[in-house]
Amino acid sequence: MNKEKVCSTGIEELDMQMSGGYPVGSTILVTGCSGSGKTTLCMQYLFDGARKNERGVFFTITEPLFKLTKNVEGFSYYDNKLIESGMVNIIDLRIISERLGLDTEKYSVEDAGSLLDILKDIANELDVKRLVIDSITALCYRLQTREMIRDFIFKLGTSLAMMNCTTLLTSEVPPQTYKFSQYEIEEFISDGILFLGDIDRRGDLIRTLQVVKMRGSAHSRTKFAMNISAERGIELMPLLKSSDFDSVLQQKVQSSLRSMDRNRERVLI
C-alpha cells in the first residue's frame, strides 16, 4: 500500500478527518444496518473519483441495476454522462453469475473462485482505481458453510491487496449493534472500517458515522452526525457530545425503572 497517497472520499468533512482521504490501495469495510447510507456513501465516492479522472466500478449483488440507478439519480453528485462514458460502471453480479451458469442463490467453492476471477478481470480490464462491492454480506450469504465463507473472504482480501485500486466493501449488520460484520471475519481483511450507525434522540433516529480504523492514516475517531440530502449527498457534522450523555441517562433511567419494577414485584409477592 502506498501510504503517502490518498484517495478522496467525496465527502469534504470525511477527507479532513483522514488527512485527505482513504490511503490508496486499501480495502475499507463500510458497515451499518439497512438504511444507514452505505450505498450512498459508496456511490458518492465513485462519482467523486470519476470527476477526478479515476475510473470506478460498483458490483451490486443486493439490488437490481434499474432500482439502484433510480435511487442515486436524485443526488446532485450523480451524472449520467459519467456512466455513459464508462467512468462509473455499475455491474450486477447476479447477471454475471447467470451468464457463467452459476446457481445465483448458492455458490460452491468453485463458483466463488470463478466469480472472484471475473471480478479481478473486470477491474483489471477497465483499469479501475476505485472499486465497490455491495455487499460482502450478500455475497457470503450464498456460500454454504462458515469455512467456505472464511476461505472466500481471505482469498478476496488477497486479490484486492494485489489490485491497484482502493476498495469499499459494504457490510450489513443488525440495527443498534456495535458489530462490524455478519461473519466476524470481514474486518480482518480490511485496512479500514467506517461504522455507520444511529442514535436515538427522543424517538428520532440520527444517522452517525465513525472512522473506527484506517491503517496508514492519522485519523480522527470522533462520532459524526450524518445527513443525506439530494442537493449535497452525505454531509457530516461532529455529533453533539451531550447526545451520549442523553442515551447513558436514558439507559440509567430504564435500568432503575426495571429494578423498581422488580422490587415492586417482590413486595407484591
Partner: peptide
C-alpha cells in the same frame, strides 16, 4: 424533520 436534529439545523 424534527427540532431534535440539532446537527442538521447547524448544517
Amino acid at each position: 424533520e424534527s427540532p431534535t436534529m440539532l446537527e442538521k439545523i447547524i448544517l
